[in-house]
């Protein structure tokens, strides 16, 4: 039979567990942001709420990123194939822009979280 202390213990454990869930929920519930990485190192995390231009030094030269109206894109890059520029605007969590020659990676992170774990393309 459970003693009074057992019940307190169980109650506290459940309370802690529930609180942890809530904490996780609140932490992941932040506004949409773009994470910019150069050569696998995070260099900047920008909110999509404020319009701005970001000048970066990529592996092979300059890369300019633009944030406007909750979206982000690469506007200038020293790469040849321009795959990053041609990707255009992105705004959904999990979407990314890649510039291989400059080793620049822009990923959208957000409260919704990606609906899929990965995309095959």
């Amino acid at each position: 039979m459970l003693t009074r202390n057992d019940k307190i213990l169980i109650f506290s454990l459940v309370a802690i567990a529930s609180l942890s869930f809530l904490r996780l929920f609140f932490i992941s519930n932040r506004a949409s942001e773009a994470l910019i990485k150069v050569d696998n190192l995070p260099v900047q995390r920008v909110s999509l709420k404020t319009d701005r231009r970001i000048d970066l030094e990529g592996e092979n030269g300059r890369v300019v990123i633009e944030v406007r109206e909750g979206r982000v894109r690469v506007v200038e890059s020293t790469c040849f194939q321009r795959i990053c520029i041609n990707t255009g605007w992105i705004n959904k969590p999990g979407q990314n822009i890649v510039c291989l020659p400059n080793k620049v990676l822009v990923t959208i992170e957000g409260k919704e979280g990606p609906k899929v774990d990965a995309v095959s393309y």
Partner: peptide, 27 residues
């Protein structure tokens, strides 16, 4: 985009999107 998923992701199946070939950013 070419991948292998090993086991399950925290108890559930992996959810993999297939890119829409004509709509950039959509699945």
């Amino acid at each position: 985009g070419d991948m292998y998923v090993l086991g399950r992701k925290q108890g559930r199946l992996w959810r993999i999107g297939i890119r829409h070939p004509r709509r950039e950013g959509e699945i």
